[in-house]
Design a protein around this nucleic acid. Structure first.
Length: 216
DNA sequence: AAGCTTAGCAACCGCTGGTGT
DNA sequence: CACACCAGCGGTTGCTAAGCT
């Protein structure tokens, strides 16, 4: 009767779901800063987070990662997304690899909420055949060999963390410390330049809430 | 001014392929 | 060889904010 796959061990650890809190973010950030990422289930447990490894991974990759870039898709990026989507269909992660700092999730959301809508309105009444819709595109069969698990970041060295935007309201975005994205984005072991952003009491590489979210 | 609808986004879910035991 | 575990992908949902009537 127990199929506890380690991740779902609902025995004594109740698993949290839903939106992440600042505290949880901090725990995750600090843990990864000190121990590195990987083996997410173990990480979740060791860090003391009552989350699944999956959830931690997602949170980190899509949101907390220093080199992640959110909001304000530029027109150039939009063009690229449309182009790549026309070529590959819904291969979001593949597309994302060509947009430094962007995640598959964000591109997917962007596509669905904006581009798809735009096209629907533009393509309009007459055309019965949407030349753009992904249905017929490269849907060979369900194969996605995830080539690598790092985006080829490092190319986009100039991520200004979305602060230089005049557009989005910008939800709370913790990682607005200029990350050393030009190194190895994966490791993040020693937040060298980020360490500069830390205030005094974070001597041993522990970031406090004030360091990340300056609540005005 | 209040209620209702729509848009946007963060996060979850199920599934797949790869790898180690 | 079979089984178990892990990482990753893409689809989908649920919640909140914004816009509209």
């Amino acid at each position: 009767m127990d199929k506890k796959t380690g991740e779902n061990a609902v025995q004594d650890v109740e698993v949290r779901k839903g939106p992440w809190t600042m505290e949880e973010d901090l725990i995750l950030i600090n843990y990864i800063a000190n121990h590195g990422e990987g083996v997410w289930n173990t990480l979740a447990r060791s860090a003391g987070l009552k989350r699944t490894g999956k959830s931690c991974r997602l949170r980190w990759l899509n949101y907390l990662r220093p080199d992640v870039r959110r909001g304000n898709i530029t027109p150039e990026e939009q063009m690229l997304i449309m182009e790549l989507h026309a070529r590959w269909g819904n291969r979001w992660s593949k597309i994302a690899r060509h947009l430094p700092g962007r995640t598959d999730n964000e591109i997917k959301n962007y596509w669905r909420t904006r581009i798809q809508k735009q096209m629907k309105q533009a393509e309009a009444p007459y055309t019965t055949q949407n030349k753009y819709i992904s249905h017929g595109v490269v849907r060979d069969h369900h194969h996605h060999h995830h080539d690598h698990h790092h985006v080829d970041a490092g190319a986009g060295a100039s991520h200004s963390c979305g602060t230089s935007d005049g557009l989005a309201p910008e939800t709370y975005s913790p990682m607005c410390l200029e990350s050393a994205s030009t190194g190895n984005p994966d490791a993040f072991q020693q937040p060298s330049s980020a360490a500069a952003a830390m205030s005094a009491d974070s001597a041993e590489g522990f970031w406090s809430v004030e360091d990340l979210w300056s609540n005005e």
